[in-house]
Design a protein around this nucleic acid. Structure first.
Lengths: 333, 333
DNA sequence: CATTGGCACTCTATATTTGAGAGTGCCAAA
DNA sequence: TTTGGCACTCTCAAATATAGAGTGCCAATG
């Protein structure tokens, strides 16, 4: 009953009345009966009417109940998965891959797609390189075994000669070889504390440099695509709302916080309307799934759309995409 | 006369009538006189009326005339320049700097700011590095003297050993040391053709790798900020227009073409409305200025807003910002 | 007791009307 | 050349109808 109502509302976004529902629902009931049921549902807080004489629309609690218990999400059929996989393409760098994934998500769902950059905690250290630029500016380059490159400008306290830098990177490359970045950071901290006394000058320099290049490393960020798709939904077609929403997308902070929550809860996460706790997202829902490399969750991807979202269709897509992305990233190692 | 009208229209966006104008203009003329002048201006194609009984608004030709001949743009006063410089901040990587510049442009003008990434043609080669990842996948890293890093996945035809790669990079580093990327590319082409016969296997490999890493190098791109500012202008407050505009911003191609035209024309360029030739920008204007490093134009920055834009204010700002950015980039070398 | 048809009532959305205001064009006068 | 006057036009906003959808409640039904 509630399911039919929500299904219908999701389909075309108009409040749905008893008459429509009696025709729609498989059950053979007159509008009058349905009116009774509907006023029950209203008391339970699952639906409301925008005004006395419009149909009813689902509340957040309504959607929540719908999603949690009424919905039977069947995993995406093999054919569709294959289609997604095909559209992804494999032979590309990680950033292109992520770009492609957001594009895919937004394209397939006609909403906004989002993917966090994978965390590098579990990436394996390959090597580090320091290049002198001028006086006390050094360019640090950190490469992981997966071929990710991070570079960062480092200001040193004193001027370092090229050979010093060479020594430092040799030392670090040997020390950290094959460890993952988490371990690298630990090793670094230990070394700095325990052997401080026995360190020579070269080692000190090396440590300081390493400390700096690893520092900002956990920079969180995400890629987004298809924001403009959201303009099509008339419930969001208010300039003010849109502006707030897009500003939030640009500022990134709030969205990042939300996405971060999704990493910790396991599996598919769904925020409906106000549940997110951020006012700008009051009229939006977000469906996310974490993706893994090597059995470790390294990031989240998802879809942002209006609360009136085709959850039944979106959830399997997000789920499958997360798996595909994980698989693609694994293959890179 | 036309100037006063346009000034006024720019200020509050309403069509302006003869009465208003007679009060506004310093000249002591009655509305009736002004009506005569206005109908002259209308015949010249500088203004139109949206309907019989609204004031007049400037046409594209009107703006053009206004900008070209009526406007006396005085360079930004020293104090404001200093203020801009202060907000830029110096000690940051190039990409942060560009980010900061777009933010500044959009913030100061309350419109959308845009900056192209600097072309690297004139950047000086520092070194190149090849890291084996797996089988036939090699990570190529190209570093310029300015500390820009570009990395790129390279698929090799055959499996290269680490030492081969090492040899190759040594060879290239020596060959290209101190040249700018344009020269590097030329050297590369020459070497590949002329000495093909005398090349040994190592050199062949090196050349192929270098070719690949230099190839995509001229990737054009831009950074944008403050798109949402455009939502405030009621002439753009139409969902469809906005959607088209934002889609164009995301696709980037059209905007890039336009920005490219701005590099070639020298100095400040202004596109008003349809002049751009792109329908999505019909109701927008764009004010751009190229910025230089080492006396060479390496990119463009600018502002995108509605045709009703405070040109008099925006032009000096764009101009000054371009200089500041150039100066900041120069300082990096 | 759940279900149903009937009916008066409410509220919105849409169309229509109306009037005020702003601006114009034109003309004759200064 | 400039000006005031005047009739005319057109939009915007408010006010006013009207149709339609949906509700709630009640009495009737099996």
């Amino acid at each position: 009953m509630l399911k039919v109502l929500i299904d219908r509302y999701i389909r075309d976004g108009h409040p749905v009345g008893s008459r429509t529902l009696s025709r729609e629902a498989g059950l053979d009931l007159s509008p009058a009966t349905i009116r009774n049921v509907m006023s029950d549902l209203e008391e339970l807080g699952f639906i409301t009417s925008p005004h006395t004489s419009a149909g009813r629309i689902p509340t957040v609690q309504g959607y929540r109940f719908f999603v949690d218990t009424l919905l039977n999400v069947k995993p995406l059929d093999a054919k569709s998965v294959e289609q997604l996989r095909a559209e992804l393409g494999i032979e590309m760098g990680t950033s292109d891959l992520l770009e492609s994934v957001t594009g895919l998500l937004s394209g397939v769902t006609a909403m906004a797609g989002v993917v966090t950059l994978p965390k590098h905690e579990h990436a394996v250290f390959n090597r580090v390189e320091f290049l002198p630029l001028s006086d006390n500016r050094v360019l640090g380059i950190l490469v992981t075994s997966e071929g990710e490159v991070q570079n960062r400008m480092i200001m040193t306290e004193r001027v370092c000669s090229p050979s010093e830098l060479q020594q430092a990177s040799n030392y670090l490359n040997e020390l950290f070889a094959g460890k993952d970045l988490g371990a690298v950071r630990n090793t670094l901290l230990n070394e700095m504390q325990e052997t401080r006394s026995t360190m020579n000058r070269m080692m000190m320099t090396a440590m300081q440099l390493a400390d700096q290049i690893l520092e900002k490393n956990q920079s969180e960020d995400y890629i987004m695509a298809g924001q403009t798709n959201l303009m099509e939904f008339h419930e969001l077609c208010d300039i003010d709302k849109l502006r707030n929403l897009f500003d939030a997308f640009n500022k990134k902070q709030e969205i990042l916080n939300l996405l971060d929550q999704c990493v910790h809860g396991d599996g598919i996460q769904i925020f409906i309307g106000e549940e997110s706790g951020y006012q700008t997202l009051d009229e939006c829902s977000m469906v996310t799934a974490p993706y893994q490399v090597d059995g470790q969750i390294v990031g989240v991807l998802g879809v942002i759309g209006p609360t009136r979202m085709a959850y039944e269709r979106v959830i399997p897509i997000v789920d499958a995409t997360a798996r595909l992305l994980g698989a693609a990233l694994n293959q890179k190692e």
